[in-house]
């Protein structure tokens, strides 16, 4: 681990000033991802700007009936927050599907959005990796890629985004509030993470001097018909091979609104408006869900070891939509898949 300077930001403008003053600086919140990467010498910040005590821990109603969640709300607090459990249970469920109780207690909303890929080469400084050291090559393309992306990949990088929370946020149509040297801006969560293209070292569209201050949930919470299903190599405490966030609004058995996002398959949570639109007005049946899955997975390509993910994702989408339609969401406490 490198020697680092340490500053504690007193408020958001202070954090932005500190970031601007030291281009090598990084924000630290829960530290559960950043410290690990520093130990591996993957991240070598010159300075840590501790934002963990900033007053960004509120969950508040917005004027239009949604919720605004401070960037420092711990993942556990958010998952068990009464308003989230009641109005946005999909988000609770996705958070609880991730990591372990201890990690979720430390992890923050902002840190979760910013967590980096789990690609093994990214973590191992002795191997080439475009994301870690631009221009060195992608070891995963023809190497160990069993858990790599099948959608939105590039010749430079086939890494996946590991966050569970983001998948639910994408499905719910969340917004990300950002503050920076030139003021504040808001972008859709689905525009927050990038595809790798030829710049895989950039995970997100957050500018270098910017900080996430909050995420905002629109009013519609899909609290009745939703499910988050995570398929992994053991029954808990593993990153997703494939995960699905599904949310429906039903009128009788007809779908009036559908949301569908995939995790573990791309450099960002994967949504397809086309797939969702195809469900509008349809009956909630496995056939229709299968067709939506096909649309969602359009263009999926595999490398040597991850071909299984395409079929797995398809089946998982159908299952999750069935769970959502029948109002029997996947439990994250019982590891049996419903």
């Amino acid at each position: 681990m490198n020697n680092v300077q340490y500053s504690r930001a007193s408020d958001v403008p202070d954090a932005i000033r500190l970031l601007a003053a030291d281009p090598g600086a990084k924000l630290i919140a829960g530290g559960t991802n950043l410290i690990d990467l520093m130990k591996e010498n993957v991240e070598r910040p010159s300075r840590l700007i501790d934002i963990s005590r900033l007053p960004l821990r509120d969950v508040e109603d917005t004027a239009d009936g949604g919720l605004r969640i401070g960037a420092l709300v711990p993942n556990s607090d958010l998952a068990y927050h009464p308003l989230i459990e009641k109005r946005y249970p999909l988000l609770s469920s996705a958070i609880l599907a991730g990591a372990s109780a201890q990690l979720r207690n430390m992890a923050s909303v902002g840190g979760n959005l910013m967590q980096r890929t789990r690609c093994a080469y990214f973590y191992d400084t002795a191997t080439p990796c475009n994301k870690r050291s631009p221009g060195t090559g992608c070891s995963a393309l023809d190497g160990l890629n069993r858990n790599h992306a099948i959608l939105g990949t590039s010749k430079s990088c086939i890494a996946t985004n590991p966050s569970d929370m983001s998948v639910a946020l994408a499905a719910l149509g969340a917004l990300v509030h950002i503050a920076g040297p030139t003021g504040q801006r808001t972008i859709a969560l689905t525009d927050f993470h990038r595809l790798p293209d030829d710049k895989p070292h950039l995970d997100t569209n957050l500018g270098s001097g910017e900080i996430i201050t909050a995420i905002e949930l629109p009013p519609r919470g899909f609290a009745r018909n939703y499910s988050y299903l995570k398929i992994r190599d053991r029954l808990s405490y593993a990153f997703a091979l494939v995960s699905v966030a599904a949310a429906l609004e039903l009128e009788g058995n007809a779908i009036s609104e559908a949301r569908l996002a995939l995790g573990g398959v791309a450099h960002k949570p994967w949504r397809s408006l086309e797939a969702e639109a195809a469900l509008h007005g349809q009956a909630a049946t496995p056939d229709h869900f299968g067709r939506a899955a096909d649309l969602l997975l359009q263009g999926a390509t595999a490398r040597s070891q991850n071909g299984f993910k395409i079929e797995l994702a398809r089946r998982a989408v159908v299952r999750t939509l069935m769970q959502a339609a029948s109002a029997t969401p996947q439990s994250q406490a019982h590891k049996k898949i419903a």
Partner: peptide, 30 residues
């Protein structure tokens, strides 16, 4: 039976899951 495997990239002759997040052993749920 279900989890354990030390994974090596033979192009580098390196173990690529040298940590207990990625080297899976059963957890309570298993």
């Amino acid at each position: 039976a279900l989890h354990e495997e030390t994974v090596m990239d033979h192009r580098f002759g390196r173990i690529m899951n040298a940590n207990i997040a990625e080297y899976h052993i059963p957890v309570n749920a298993d």
